[in-house]
Simulated assay, not measured.
Amino acid sequence: MELRGFSDEHGVQVASWALDAKEVALLSGRTEYPFPEDLLTNWRTVEKDIHSYLLFDGDQPVGYGEIWLDDEEDEVELARIIVDPKLRGRGVGGELVRALLGPALDAGYSEVFIRVRPENVPAIRAYHGSGFVDVPAALMEEWNDGQPVPYRWMRYAGEQVDDGELRG
């Protein structure tokens, strides 16, 4: 599989991967379902500190994710990660996260974070398998203050190796 920069020609396809209002909200910040017609070609925010990517299997897009750069906090956040629903449960999410770590780490910031809804057990499993660990509970509580929902916050601690140790 190969990570490539996102192009708007795939916007409608990626938007179709959102199967309910919760997934639309995670992808676009809007809660209408199906995906709002007015957002089908311009649903993502184009800002210099947000980089959008697609994971391809051959010529077929299979996953989407963003990297949010934060100069002020010296950190990167992986965000808006979604996998083609036909391929969920097959390890594509973990592969997408590991691919996104390439440009995230190359950006040179001191920390890489990800947030996830606590009930999204498959995503949490993929993030753990990709080297993410939970931030301390007090920090999680602090970061959730003012958020629309309470998230489970995780930071990248390094690559998982066969003996269970982390390599960073």
Rank of each mutant, 00 (worst) to 15 (best):
N42S: 14
A21P: 05
E72I: 12
V46F: 06
Q60T: 15
L105V: 13
L78C: 01
R115T: 02
V46A: 13
R90D: 10
G94C: 04
R80F: 10
I50P: 10
P150W: 00
S110A: 11
P118R: 07
D162C: 08
H128P: 00
D162I: 15
V46N: 13
E141I: 09
R167T: 15
S52H: 13
E2S: 13
A104T: 06
A157N: 00
A157M: 02
N144S: 06
D59C: 04
D20E: 10
L69H: 08
K22M: 09
W43P: 12
V46P: 09
M1W: 02
A138R: 03
T41Q: 11
F35T: 12
P148R: 05
G108E: 12
P136E: 13
E37Q: 12
G158Y: 02
P150Q: 10
S110K: 05
A138M: 07
K22W: 06
W153C: 00
L87R: 15
V83E: 01
R88Y: 07
G164W: 06
D70E: 11
V62Y: 01
A18E: 01
A126D: 07
W17S: 03
A104D: 05
V97P: 03
G93E: 02
E23T: 01
L39E: 13
D70S: 08
D57G: 08
R117G: 10
A25P: 06
V76D: 07
S52Q: 14
A79C: 03
V121W: 01
P36T: 12
Q60P: 08
G11I: 13
D134P: 04
L96N: 02
E95T: 15
L40T: 14
W17D: 07
A18L: 07
Y53E: 13
R80D: 14
L19F: 00
D20H: 00
R30Y: 15
A79M: 05
E75W: 04
A137F: 07
Y109T: 14
S52P: 10
R90L: 15
E73D: 13
W17C: 01
H51S: 11
V12W: 09
P118L: 06
P118W: 03
E165R: 14
F35P: 08
P36K: 02
Q160I: 13
G108V: 13
F132M: 00
R4C: 05
S16W: 01
L78Q: 01
G58C: 01
N42F: 05
L100C: 01
H128V: 05
I50R: 04
G93K: 01
R88I: 07
V92E: 10
D84M: 02
